[in-house]
Nucleic acid binder design. Sequence first.
DNA 1: AGCAAAATAGAATAAATATTCCAAATTGGC
DNA 2: GCCAATTTGGAATATTTATTCTATTTTGCT
Lengths: 276, 276
Amino acid sequence: MELTDPMDQLVAPASIDDFRSRLAGVIDQLPRRLRQCADHIAANEDRIAVSTVADLAVGADVPPSALIRFCQILGFSGFSEMQRLFRGAYVPGWPDYATRLADLKLGGAGSPTALLAEFIEAGRLSLESLATSVDDAVLGRAVAELAAADTIHIVGLRRAFPVASYLAYVFENMSVSAMLHDGIGKLDHRFALRPGDAVIAITFAPYSEETLALAHDAADRGLPVVALTDRQASPLAKFSSAVLTVPEVDFGAFRALSATIVLAMTLAVAVGAARE
Amino acid sequence: MELTDPMDQLVAPASIDDFRSRLAGVIDQLPRRLRQCADHIAANEDRIAVSTVADLAVGADVPPSALIRFCQILGFSGFSEMQRLFRGAYVPGWPDYATRLADLKLGGAGSPTALLAEFIEAGRLSLESLATSVDDAVLGRAVAELAAADTIHIVGLRRAFPVASYLAYVFENMSVSAMLHDGIGKLDHRFALRPGDAVIAITFAPYSEETLALAHDAADRGLPVVALTDRQASPLAKFSSAVLTVPEVDFGAFRALSATIVLAMTLAVAVGAARE
DNA sequence: AGCAAAATAGAATAAATATTCCAAATTGGC
DNA sequence: GCCAATTTGGAATATTTATTCTATTTTGCT
């Protein structure tokens, strides 16, 4: 085979699909060693992002240099470039997103329209990421627990308050007995939480003391606590029976709540439906 | 914090769960920089396997050495060992958003995950149409008017209340003087609205009387009123100086606020930026 | 079988990446 | 407001990892 075919050299595959079709195009005119590379790579596409040349070479049972020649035949400059494609394709857009937003300095932000475009993009990505990250089993458990409860207590302050109030609104519309704790009358937790009730606690870093306290209190009394939070290691996780995490992109101190609101709405509507 | 606690040094976390609980155990006794590492790592667990120290350090906004110290506190010998753990457990999530969404829908009509898929889709559509439907000129005018105001009055009840409270939160964080009218003390409009102030009114069909009344009142006194509503023919349009419409896609009887929240955030951040 | 063209292995080198270390800055206790 | 202890940043270094190069082997052709 002609290794220096100028056609192949010109440009590297720009997407995984591109990569696949290019691989399919050459695979059966490759000599033995390179064929081994192709086979092993094709069979282990999902490990390219996290492997070294040496790892893959051992797997394919070829010397490292063969693997690199193989990458070059596909149009990459070397293994690193191919790996970059696979690393970047995984949850596309996320890697440099936080950085991009961070670069958008508040003072230097362009027109409101440009800002809007950024936030729309952030919201879109958050929703996509929500789709792939939600744990069906946990969501199901959360719905079941809330559906079985007498009264649902909702607590979420500061940044989480809009979500909490939205939940309260939807529950009310569905005639589900719910109580929104807004932290104004701070003493009422202990009297309001009754056996048979359940709690939805919403908080993001920096976690609000009052929210944690109420959730803690409820857990101590054996009530189910559903957590809507930003990560598994959240302090809420310690005393929650179901932890739902929402991957949301921050902008400075601000957080677009698109994904959180959508998840909250799902929870509320599913609970309402389950009660009928 | 004692960095050389012998307990932590002894053995590296053996699993991701182990890692998470160890992280949760130390996270709130870490000093500033290390705390940043912890936050960023926790929020980007899924990228550890495919990132370099430098990448993550940039994301966390710390020097690389801080990140490595952080890994060591968790019990690893360094970053590489931590990465090894995540590479082993790595299962690529791939850009299979579409597939995943389809799977969710298949969860069976009525199941929480099927619902979630529908809401995510509705949210995405709303955001996309927001991008194309916003009138730059109107948005610019709204920002200018609000930026010039002394105090910004925010009114939005029922379904719109989460958006209003979100605006109030963001303004507060940006030290913009704002007042959230929650309809509890209904008499105060007339005394609160002062010359030089401006109003953001948010309402969707069926339009809330109180919101319209406050907006009307403000317009009568010559204050600028920015409307966030669902269509140009909204009753708010009559007495608003800038009408921003949000094309929110309904799913059944329910409306997600994804696009509305994003537009509100843009407004708030742009106003905050313009004030500096 | 003999020759030219292509392919290969592995050692040598280059590049990238991780880690250490210590002077400087910060924090907390008094 | 000072001192001791802790934390931090970044330059220097060590290590790992990728890539190139070339002598050697294999292949395909006559």
